[in-house]
Design a binder for these strands. Structure first.
Length: 475
RNA sequence: GGAGGGAUCGCAUAGUGGUCUAGUGCGGCCGCCUGCUAAGCGGUUACAGGGACUUAAAUCCCUGUCAUGGGUUCGAAUCCCAUUCCCUCCGCCA
């Protein structure tokens, strides 16, 4: 979420960012946001002024009513009028003070009664005014809701350093590492290897759950588990991340906090009975770990293995072959909560942490900087990491590392104190896969396949597979 | 799923309709005192929104917030209703 303050004070910054994203729809909403914001402010000011008067008045009634004796009553009235900020009320108090009944026997009681009924009358007037004001702003709650929804639907401000561009074709390769292997034979795609080795069962996946589901069998399943364990181990013991095992189902608010709702509900699985949502990435629960908190110590590095669930409505018909894009997949996710001034270099470190895994696995990979037009909704700056898959002949996105700046922190209300005792400020959040599983599995199978259809297991994974060096069959 | 109890400032607690503009203790921060440490003394102590003044910060004023949302009342931490969460017991269960 963008701050209303930014939209008010620097609308040109917001406009330019939306233009760079090519987000014409959001651009059109800016004027409406300004209008709603202005309207809300003026109506609030009127109501608050009235409420302030009402509070001042109501504060008089208690002591007035509770006074025990004329001296006490008189003293209260005298003292209070001296500090009364409201002219009408001060005038009223002075009038009570000047009344003649004080001198009669029990006269103070009639002053008291008079004062109370006068003030009640005044209060009734204020209540009427307040009511009129409320009636005038009849649609206020709806407008407030609309303003809120509009704010939640604007994408993050694009970082200045992000190159211009309209879409994926304009992304820039910033680093390439590792040599694509040279095969003395035609490398096979993973769906052929997986099937002939008996480690991927497509037909049974479809039988169980329909299209875009598969079953991993034997060493295929074990290889995936080895990859998960390997990646978690490296991140926790060498890269400084704390392992987290979060719920795979979350409440609606959690998805608002991370930026998936209200805009991208289409791509999520949802249980209507309990209003629980299956996470599309561990980024969602981890962002919300610290929702509504003021963090004591930064930075915080987390890494989580989770399954991820996506409807893939937006990608209907794409990547239907193999295991590249399923409705359910596993992923190890890195996540950081950091101080704003360090988020730039933290992003670079996160990319390094992800590519480190590719290097250790021996997979040829490259780092791609996303252009403004291809940037995700919540991201200010992103790098994708792609590994080469010689069988299907394409670069596979196995990670997308993003600096979300304060965009998610503002939605999820996650803050820290720059100085002890200072004002809380929003943290910056970063997320990146480290790495996404079925694709890294594809890369391992396709890069290390042998002429006989077997697959050599990368050295770093062998300890996780009981020392096995090669997959020749599922067993 | 059933029955009962609960939710107050960072923590612990007080608070049964107006003096609550939420008290007290602990912790934190600032200062004083002080061979060191500890203790002591004084002060301070949330968040959000809006406004005044400002280059800005600081400061000041107003509104809201005692789990959340409604209601009763001139006035609600306090009374009523609903929701959420926590605890205890019962049932069921990997």
């Amino acid at each position: 979420m963008l701050s209303l303050d930014l939209i008010r004070k620097s609308p040109e910054v917001v406009r330019r960012s939306l233009e760079r994203r090519g987000d014409a729809a959001s651009l059109a909403l800016l004027a409406r946001i300004g209008e709603l914001d202005g309207r809300r402010r003026t109506s609030r000011q009127g109501a608050e002024a009235l409420r302030a008067r009402q509070n001042r008045l109501t504060r008089l009634l208690g002591p007035l009513r509770g006074a025990k004796g004329g001296a006490q009553l008189k003293g209260f009235i005298e003292k209070t009028q001296a500090t009364m900020a409201d002219d009408d009320l001060r005038a009223a108090l002075l009038r009570f003070y000047a009344m003649s009944n004080w001198d009669k026997l029990d006269g103070w009681k009639s002053v008291q009664a008079h004062a109370i009924s006068e003030l009640m009358k005044l209060n009734a007037e204020l209540a009427t005014q307040l009511q009129a004001l409320e009636k005038q702003d009849e649609g206020a709650p709806e407008l407030e809701q609309e303003l809120n929804d509009l704010l939640l639907s604007l994408p993050n401000i694009v970082d200045e350093a992000v190159p211009d561009g309209a879409g994926p074709a304009d992304n820039q390769v910033v680093a390439t590492s590792g040599e694509p292997p040279a095969f003395p034979f035609t490398p096979k795609p993973h769906w052929e290897l997986g099937e002939s080795l008996g480690i991927i069962d497509f037909a049974r996946g479809v039988k169980l759950s329909g299209t875009r589901f598969y079953v991993l069998m034997g060493l295929g399943a074990r290889l995936q588990r080895a990859l998960i364990a390997f990646m978690l181990d490296v991140h926790t013991t060498e890269h400084g991340y704390t392992e987290v095992y979060p719920p795979f189902m979350v409440k609606r608010e959690a998805l608002v906090g991370s930026g998936n709702l209200p805009k991208f509900g289409d791509n999520l699985y949802h249980d209507a009975e309990d209003d629980l949502w299956l996470i599309p990435t561990a980024e969602v629960p981890i962002t919300n770990l610290h929702r509504d908190e003021i963090l004591e110590a930064l930075p915080l590095y987390y890494v989580a293995y989770t399954a991820c669930f996506r409807r893939e409505k937006m990608s209907a018909g794409r990547d239907t072959r193999g295991i590249k894009r399923g409705h359910q997949f596993d992923k190890v996710e890195m996540y950081k909560f950091v101080a704003p001034e360090s988020s730039g270099q933290e992003l670079d470190r996160m990319v390094a942490d992800a590519t480190d895994l590719c290097r250790r696995l021996g997979l040829p990979h490259r780092v791609v900087q996303l252009c403004a037009g291809d940037l995700g909704f919540a991201s200010a700056k992103s790098y994708d990491i792609e590994v080469w898959a010689p069988g299907c002949g394409e670069w596979l996105e196995v990670s997308s590392c993003s600096n979300c700046a304060d965009f998610q922190a503002r939605r999820a209300n996650i803050r820290y104190r720059p100085q002890a005792g200072g004002r809380p400020q929003f943290v910056h959040t970063l997320n990146g896969s480290g790495l996404a599983l079925p694709r890294i599995l594809i890369a391992v199978l396709e890069n290390f396949q042998q002429a006989d259809g077997s697959v050599i297991i990368p050295g770093v994974l062998r300890p996780y597979l009981g020392g096995a060096e090669r997959i020749t069959s599922a067993k």
